[in-house]
Simulated assay, not measured.
Amino acid sequence: MEVSTIRVVAWVLANIFRNKNLTLTPEQLKESIATLKVLVNYRDEEVNVDALWALSYLSEQGDEEIEGVLREDLLPVIVRHLGSDRSQMIVPALRASGNIVSGNDLQTEAALAAGVLPLYKQLLRNTRRNIRKETAWALSNVTAGTRGQIQQVVDEDLLLDLVIDQGCITFFNNLIFVRYQAHHAETGITLIRVNVGMLLLRLRIVKMEYRQDFIRAEGGTRTTYKRKRTWALSNLTSGGTPSQIEALVAAGGVEALVTVLGVFETSVVTVALEGLDNILAVSMEVSVPTVSGTGPTRFKKEYFAMVLKQLCGKGIKGLCIIVCRGGCGYAECGDKQAIVQKIAEAGGKEKLEILQRNTDETVSNKAKGLLEMHFDNKRDNSDESDNESQEDALDN
């Protein structure tokens, strides 16, 4: 058969399966998937792309269709195309794999066993926003799964990549401080804390794609991308263990969720509020043992090692020799006050005060509840009253 004819067949199938109301008998489903298996392995890229799109549309139909794809052993082919260097091949493969991980727990586990997570990690760093968006969506389905599946996301060090656009500068500032001794003529030796994130940016140590991520953390990203990543983070706070939530906090998850509070899409803000509420709820229920540092801050050695590993993987090998003499700290899952402080330092309290007057009742109630439960508004108001009384007394 002519290649041109095969291309037409693949294109037609892709358009047929694009119909969301399509109903197939078990036999038709089996034959369709068998045909797609031939097409996705065909020696023509155009045919492969259309066959992958057809698989993505088909797997979107439901668990039965996903099971058919798995039975025909098409998952390894989909995963192979995830590693392609051509975006027209990556996007449909990414959509198909995302549909599979959105299936039941066994189907999600099959995709994880096939090795999607390391590829998702690479794709979160892709220069194309739509690829990063689709990857974040796929990961949101994984973090909505079992705790074992969430743990695989944590073990793959994917949390840092999930938050890096929104919270990377704060992440570097909170997790790694370069401290050095500077002699001052009058005060003697002074400890100076350097803003590592901005230092790397200004010295152009970070690779170009990561420098762009730093800039996006300041300027924000499109709401669709934020929405997908916010779901991934919030899902983890809903179904994860305290240690998994602690890993998210260590990766800058609190700052990333606070950043989302400033967008105008109600559904995204609601999900971010739920994520923060879940983190704070866990912080009140558990107490996590810590390793004391030599200075006023405390840190866990394993997380400091994780950070260095992440930095080394990004080509910033010079930072791997940093020694934090004063201790490198982050807010722990069992330290409610530290979490509250992180929210406040990221501008979260001000955003919550604005959101409590939001016209959407769900958003306003959630914001008001967080303020009343975790931020001492009454004390702030009494302090203001005391200040006003003192000013009146001085005027008199």
Rank of each mutant, 00 (worst) to 15 (best):
L29P: 03
L29T: 03
K30F: 08
E31S: 12
E31R: 10
E31Q: 14
S32P: 05
I33F: 13
I33T: 14
I33H: 12
I33Y: 12
I33M: 11
A34F: 13
A34C: 08
A34D: 15
T35G: 13
T35D: 12
T35N: 11
T35I: 06
L36K: 03
L36Y: 10
V38T: 07
V38S: 01
V38D: 02
V38R: 06
V38P: 00
V40C: 04
V40H: 05
V40P: 06
V40A: 04
Y42E: 12
Y42A: 15
Y42P: 02
Y42L: 10
R43N: 14
R43P: 15
R43C: 11
D44K: 03
D44W: 06
D44M: 01
E45W: 02
E45P: 00
E46K: 13
E46H: 09
E46S: 03
E46R: 12
V47T: 14
V47R: 00
N48L: 05
N48E: 03
N48T: 09
N48P: 00
N48R: 05
V49Y: 00
V49P: 00
D50Q: 07
D50I: 13
A51C: 04
A51L: 06
A51I: 15
L52C: 11
L52R: 03
L52S: 12
W53A: 06
W53Q: 04
A54Y: 02
A54G: 09
A54L: 14
A54V: 14
L55S: 06
L55N: 11
L55I: 10
S56C: 04
S56E: 13
Y57P: 00
Y57Q: 01
Y57S: 04
L58P: 15
L58K: 00
L58Q: 04
S59V: 03
S59E: 05
S59K: 01
E60F: 02
E60N: 11
E60A: 07
Q61L: 01
Q61H: 05
Q61K: 05
G62F: 06
G62N: 05
G62W: 05
G62L: 06
D63N: 09
D63A: 09
D63C: 02
E64Y: 12
E64N: 06
E64P: 08
E65I: 04
E65S: 08
E65W: 07
I66W: 08
I66K: 15
I66E: 10
I66C: 12
I66R: 15
I66Y: 09
E67D: 12
G68M: 13
V69Y: 08
V69L: 12
V69S: 06
L70Q: 06
L70I: 11
L70Y: 09
L70D: 02
R71P: 01
E72W: 11
E72I: 15
E72Y: 15
E72K: 10
D73S: 02
D73H: 10
